[in-house]
């Protein structure tokens, strides 16, 4: 394994790279080194055919919590919320079970409060719910300066 590949895999294991980014970098490294890597790091078998050493990719564990952190150094206000993603999944699945009348009442009540909520959770299947959660996992917000900070991320 080349030094660049090892470095990329270390960064992936430390969580500094996502799986997609690591895959792209490994492909780029393999492309750049080309015949040199094959000549240096591979074993020859039979009639001179080169065999590539398999690259071990460490998969990052899926995130389990949605974190919301707000810090204000002036008043030393802080908000630190950790929501398990399973809670979001369970809540969405339970809401999808609501009968039609109950859902309409909830939507009407939320509209009265100024929150238009027209999402038809009845049509959301488990795969769609997982897609929403996955999109949420890729969603990161970091806003602020030295004194005030808002961070929303998944871990």
């Amino acid at each position: 394994m080349s030094e660049e590949s090892r470095r990329i895999l270390n960064l992936l294991a430390e969580g500094k790279l996502s799986v997609d980014e690591a895959e792209r970098l490994l492909a780029a490294v393999a492309g750049v080194s080309g015949g040199t890597a094959r000549g240096g790091g591979s074993r020859s078998a039979g009639a001179g055919a080169a065999v590539e050493e398999p690259v071990m990719v460490v998969k990052k564990a899926p995130p389990r919590f949605l974190r919301v952190q707000v810090r204000s150094s002036g008043d030393q206000d802080h908000v630190n919320i950790r929501v398990p993603l399973n809670l979001l999944r369970a809540g969405m699945k339970l809401t999808a079970l609501l009968p039609e009348e109950a859902r309409e009442k909830v939507q009407a009540a939320m509209k009265e409060k100024g929150v238009p909520f027209d999402l038809d959770l009845n049509k959301m299947n488990p795969e769609a719910i997982e897609e929403v959660i996955e999109a949420l996992c890729d969603f990161t917000v970091e806003v602020g300066d030295k004194e005030d900070q808002v961070r929303i991320f998944c871990e």
Partner: peptide
């Protein structure tokens, strides 16, 4: 779906943490 749904929801509360305050 009520019993599995409510069970799943109750179990999912484990790990929920809310910390709000100031000095």
């Amino acid at each position: 779906g009520l019993v599995p749904g409510v069970s799943r929801l109750f179990c999912a509360f484990r790990g929920l943490s809310v910390d709000v305050g100031d000095r």
